[in-house]
Amino acid sequence: MIRAVGARLGGMALTLLLGSVIVFLLLNALPGDPALVMLGLDATPDAVVRLHHQLGLDLPLPLRYLRWAGGLLTLHLGTSLTYAVPVSQLLADRLRITLPLAGITLLLSVAIGLPVGVAAAARQGRVSDTAIMVAAQLFKAIPDFWGGVLLILLFALVLHWLPSGGFPGWEPSPLAALRALVLPALALALPQAAILARFMRSATLGALSEDFVRTARAKGLGTQAALWRHAVPNALVPVITLVGIQFPLLLTGTIIVETVFDLPGLGRLVLEAIDQRDLPVVQDIVLLLVGLVVLVNVAVDLAALRLDPRLGGERRA
């Protein structure tokens, strides 16, 4: 187990290192000049040169990479070129929206997806099972931004129950802030819940057909008991793996949905920063997101390993 953990952490570090090189090379090959953007239309060439120097843009590429990577290791994330404030401060501000959004989404999708999946498994072959699975296929196919627009149409513009977008901030009223996150989280969670439900159903059915469950049932264990005591816990392992697989798409879904609902979160920040050639911000955010994906994958791997030690070696869904 310890060896497995070590191997995975090592792999993670290597992935992050390679990822950081890719991000840096891609972004520093940009044609737009951040100094020009900062200085505006009538900047003199002198001013541009001076700003280049001030920003360290006149250094050779490898040195700039080392500066950036070194800064990251010591948790110095650099300074935003557009806003002239530390990137860490920007990130902290934006994560106050993106993290709750992702959290609520995850909660909603699990809270909807798992029970529905188990319910379908318990009714295998019946009309209600088929209905659930058809509905899940449908929801799975809905692009989250379109779902968002439809939710806005229904809940905000026709029924006036919830705001159609924007974020009032946490301070004046946490309740209003939560309300602003309901529709975006729902738009993200419904397709995820559909995927989870389908998966949970087949995983539960799979577990129900395993020998030890059959044996237990032969010994007189009731269907419900077999379901909850054996099948569901065993189905959770592949489901956790699935959450790991879905995570990168959920993360980028957040970026899209933040645009649909005009939420000033991390996704909006990265899109704006790309527009503005705010390199430090783009680099840090992209690497942060890449790091999150890698971290979640490793965590999911280890969790699966812990829950089911039979999964040795390199098998990963």
Partner: peptide, 10 residues
Amino acid sequence: IGDPLAATNA
């Protein structure tokens, strides 16, 4: 608030 729908709502 750049998005017109969000501005309307606000």
